[in-house]
Design a protein around this nucleic acid. Sequence first.
DNA 1: GTCTATACCCGGATAGAC
DNA 2: GTCTATCCGGGTATAGAC
Lengths: 231, 231
Amino acid sequence: MRGTLRADGERKRALIYDTALALFREKGFDATTMRDIAKSAGISLGSAYHYFPSKVAIVFAYYEEVQDAHEERVRKKLPRTDGLLERLTLVFETKLELVRRDRQLLGAIGATLVQPGNELSAFSVEGRDFLQRSVALFDAALEPLATTPEARRTMALLLWTAHLGMMLRLVHDDSRGQKRTKSLVSRALTMAVPLLQLAATPMGAGLLAQLRSLLEENGLMPLPEETLSEG
Amino acid sequence: MRGTLRADGERKRALIYDTALALFREKGFDATTMRDIAKSAGISLGSAYHYFPSKVAIVFAYYEEVQDAHEERVRKKLPRTDGLLERLTLVFETKLELVRRDRQLLGAIGATLVQPGNELSAFSVEGRDFLQRSVALFDAALEPLATTPEARRTMALLLWTAHLGMMLRLVHDDSRGQKRTKSLVSRALTMAVPLLQLAATPMGAGLLAQLRSLLEENGLMPLPEETLSEG
DNA sequence: GTCTATACCCGGATAGAC
DNA sequence: GTCTATCCGGGTATAGAC
């Protein structure tokens, strides 16, 4: 039966995935070999490669799951959260909590992201969707700001950049419970909120507009080409 | 003779280095193997590893050279350059020009920099000197700003962060002559200068002080421990 | 036709003889 | 300090089990 086969395949894929993540967390990314994973999952090496084309592919699957979970948790709590600071804190801290224990994996992702020509970089077409989904969460958090959608989107992208900084800090943060990164986030947000509010006023409009065109030209912001589906 | 021996060793090291860089530039970092390098330099694989402990070590030697060259060029021209925008442009564009053609190598550096526990990260003790040297150039460029040394140093560190962003953009920029990154730098600086001038006023002092303690706690800014050499 | 076992290639890194 | 031989692990190719 078709369904059974597919379900089997998916179960197997999940088995490999779970086994791999367990090993990564236990021994670290580099120290875990594909042979370890296959052996520990009780399958052959070839089979593992059948489901995941490479070791990093497993890590990217992990990151996709993180992205899903982040989205779900934030979308659930955001409507009940008032205040710009609280809303932004929610987005940042939820993300941090999701990835906190997986610094090694984040390092592996980061490493492939800085490779020239990498398909998954934010600057590439293929990585665009990933970026947009993530930025959308920050955009949603900014809802209380009374400003134009464009300005909001620009600020959301800036926040996403800041979130990248958080990830970089996290990777090197071996303090207990990653409290250093936590403290960084909370203090940085406290400083950022008034600036965002300032940027949302007519006074900040000019600056934001300049920023926006800068970001657009570097492929970080989609030029308004959605219009073609409206015609 | 001692001197001759050392000179021989250095000459050999330089030979490996030059050969490696030529190959990196010709075929790219990944596609160039240590065996290629050794063969092309006319020595054995083991010998190559005697002079450089790893493939990335060669790249870091390159980066140190870049750092030296950047320092030299900037220090030479800075005294003859007036105006904040011009001075900052000098620092950024000189750096860009130095590394522009070596995106693959920069990627390799970036990849090791995001590995947890890496000794050369800016957050680590070992990478501190590297960071400080680089920040000092931005600090020097900010000289025309009438403000406190602490505030200036904070801004310099922010600019260094921005310079990291430039590098990330550069790695993915395959436009002709990397004009995209060039344009990004020039436009971003035009926007940044008024903000820096604003931050240098008493109005910006509070914000900068907050920023400073944030950066200090994350090991990016040296706590004033130089005082011990003064006693 | 789907998965496994296994042998193999490649390249980074190391050991140890000289 | 140099070289050869070797290890190790990611990734691939393939032959055959079922």
